[in-house]
Simulated assay, not measured.
Amino acid sequence: MKHWVSEWHLKNIILVTLIGIITGLIFWIMDPIYTAVTAVLTPLGLAPFAGSILLGFWTMAGPLALLVVRIPGSGLLAELLGSVVEMLLGGIWGASTLISGLIQGVSSELGFAVTGYKNYGWLSVTLTSITTTVITFGYQLIRQDYAGFSAGLIVALFLVGLVSVFLFSGVLSLLIARMLERAHLLEK
Rank of each mutant, 00 (worst) to 15 (best):
A147W: 15
V165R: 07
K2D: 15
L81D: 08
P48S: 04
V165E: 07
I13P: 01
L64Q: 06
A147G: 08
V37R: 00
L162R: 03
G161M: 14
K2M: 12
L88N: 05
I103N: 04
G51R: 02
A36M: 07
G121K: 13
G170L: 13
I19G: 05
P48L: 05
L141P: 01
L98F: 13
L175A: 15
M60H: 04
T133V: 14
I33Q: 00
R182S: 14
I26M: 10
E79R: 01
T128H: 10
M1T: 14
M30V: 05
G94H: 05
S52L: 03
H9E: 15
T126N: 03
E181A: 12
L141N: 09
K118R: 15
I14F: 12
S96L: 05
R70Y: 04
K2G: 03
S129L: 10
L10I: 15
Y34C: 00
S108K: 09
P32H: 06
I33A: 03
D145K: 08
W4P: 00
G56K: 12
V160S: 04
S173E: 01
W4F: 12
T35F: 07
V134F: 15
K118G: 12
I142W: 14
N119F: 11
V16W: 09
S83C: 07
L64C: 07
R182E: 13
F57E: 00
T38R: 03
T23D: 01
I29M: 06
